[in-house]
Design a protein around this nucleic acid. Structure first.
Lengths: 209, 209, 209, 209
DNA sequence: AATGAATGAGTCTTCATTCAT
DNA sequence: GATGAATGAAGACTCATTCAT
């Protein structure tokens, strides 16, 4: 799918607003204003608000998958280090695309059917498959324990990052980090989240419990 | 605050719908129809849709806090067992109040200010404090390691449960559990989630990593 | 018509609010709150908002007519002095019952039919008749000129007072009388209005023009 | 401010209805129907009912001021004739714009603040200033008496015309003019009002009283 | 291709009134 | 008799979308 410059403008405005205010909380007028385009252009280009959402989703998730896949394939490392690299990638990616991630979290809650739900499911499956491969590889090599509940480990991986993303302002407030510049704060929580998840994965994958 | 039977009816309808379709995606007409009351009753009792949300929140979170507190205080057990009991409670509670939990997840993303945000923050603080006490107690007794990052452990606790709740239908689908009756399925994931989280906590709190 | 204490309370609240915000701009809830009575009592006592208006009107205009009539009949003076006394009475009355007068001004504009319109018309006719008698008496005695356009003189009498009442705050502002206590200000404009109208009537009734 | 044809249509419908039924008594649906436009157009063009009122006011009062000013400046006549010309203009103008005038009368009673009140006050001030100039000119030339209470003379000028406008149907009824065609009736009362006011002004400005 | 104008359906809220007690 | 609860109708306004140009 090729998108014109204006279409990208619109989709990016939509992404930001959908993330901040939800799909229903965002009006096409909002989007048009934020994108700096004429109101009628949105229907004109995308047909409807719903279709805009779908297009934006396709646009973003294309963008998404590739990065991860190439990353994994290129590295040839011991299983644990691979897992750790993958965690870093995950954290990095979700943190970088916070807006999009928020939209996914929302959409998962609402829509069990429809094209977007399908896309999310597809993404999930692919990513889960990837991790599964990595863990199986580690188990074959004897580095990882047997009997790992991979789906629930994924729940923790994504759930923890989601939680960090959606409640970062509470974390900031509670820890008195109001005045820290946002880029620094982002770096901080990214580092901490990565570290935290790595300890969990290491513990679960390698130690007896 | 005392609520009449009708008010509770309305609040429960609102909770269900807000959870399913979001605040903006739910019309007061929806709520009125679902609750089986006249449309105007909602404004009559609560003043506005927003105020209804706030009242529902207060109603539910009252309900929330007490259960946890009394539970913790009453048990006199070794720290790890206490933690495990708390995880069970947490999982149980969030799973039981899935609707309410979904609303919280949503609201956290949108609203950093306003009365609801305040209530959530308050809830979070209290619960976090409780866990902190438990962990400190374990550390004092020598059962738990030092240097635990409690806030991030909380992120994992809540984040994992949230993830399970919001993506349960994917889990169901992927694992081919379409035909399992919902109560059974709920029991299943509750058990698995509890088990999973306990392994993580045990590993993080007691083992060297 | 006999009115209970509560009914009077309601009618007086209604009068004040109708004068200030108009009939349509005033809700029965406003009236109930201002009167300190239960909302349902208004419909209960008066049947409807409209009927409340009518009752209030009847209540007030009863009050109105009598004062004027007795005043006029009792005085035995030269015609010009009678006219002057009448002007004083008129000014005094309208100024004292500003709220009611405002309502009349409004209602005249809106409703050409209906019971209230009838009442106003009746009031007007009676008062006009009175003045007519006075002027005819003066003409017969040779004190007043012939060919007076009585209806238009009435227009000036009432119109001027109305204008003073409805624009008093402009007058106050323009003349820098913000800080004068209201009772003093009322006295001032009452005096000035009376004086002004008397000059006009004297000029029109007695001088060649 | 430039208004499109449709905007003018709406404003004129609004003017008529506001005059007849008051601001609160007129619904935007009424206005839309009367103007023959879609209901949503009103919000589309003006934002709100209130803003429509303000725009209509600005539109009409622009229209208003100029006529008077140019009229006065262009004539080079003895003071009394100027005053008489001004009275004619005033009567003519207010009679022609009866709807707008009614709205002003109403608004003065309700709203002491807000943008409309400001506009009225401005109009009043300008017109009053004009008359003041004229009278001062006449006094300087020795044609008019000293000690004229100009504000109250204005009250009589505007108040009388207002009274004629708002009670014209009573006048008609009382004088048995039901069957006279309205244009004729309007001409009649315009002539009578002008004549009446001129006598008053002449008497007050030039005779000893 | 791009847009200002327009609209029907829908939003939340308030209204005056009535009912059951 | 007096009133809290309840309601249908109507209020102003916003929405996503379409149309004529």
């Amino acid at each position: 799918m090729e998108f014109s410059e204006k279409q990208v403008q619109i989709m990016e405005a939509a992404e930001k607003l959908f993330a901040a205010k939800g799909f229903d909380g965002t009006s096409v007028r909002d989007i048009a204003d934020t994108a700096g385009v004429n109101l009628a252009m949105i229907s004109y280009y995308f047909g409807s608000k719903e279709k805009l959402m779908e297009n934006m989703f396709a646009y973003r998730s294309d963008f998404f998958k590739l990065q991860l896949e190439t990353m994994i394939r290129n590295k040839e490392l011991p299983p644990l280090q691979k897992i750790e690299a993958l965690i870093d990638q995950y954290v990095d990616r979700l943190m970088k695309e916070q807006c999009f991630h928020r939209i996914i979290v929302r959409e998962q809650m609402v829509n069990y059917t429809g094209p977007i739900s399908g896309m999310i499911q597809e993404l999930k499956k692919q990513n889960q498959e990837l991790i599964k491969q990595l863990i199986l590889e580690g188990q074959k090599k004897g580095d990882f324990k047997k009997g790992i509940d991979i789906p629930f480990l994924m729940m923790t991986l994504i759930g923890t990052i989601s939680q960090v993303i959606t409640t970062q302002h509470y974390y900031r407030e509670i820890n008195g980090l109001h005045s820290m510049p946002d880029p620094d704060f982002q770096k901080l929580i990214k580092k901490k989240t990565g570290h935290h998840l790595k300890s969990i994965f290491k513990a679960i994958l390698t130690h007896e419990v």
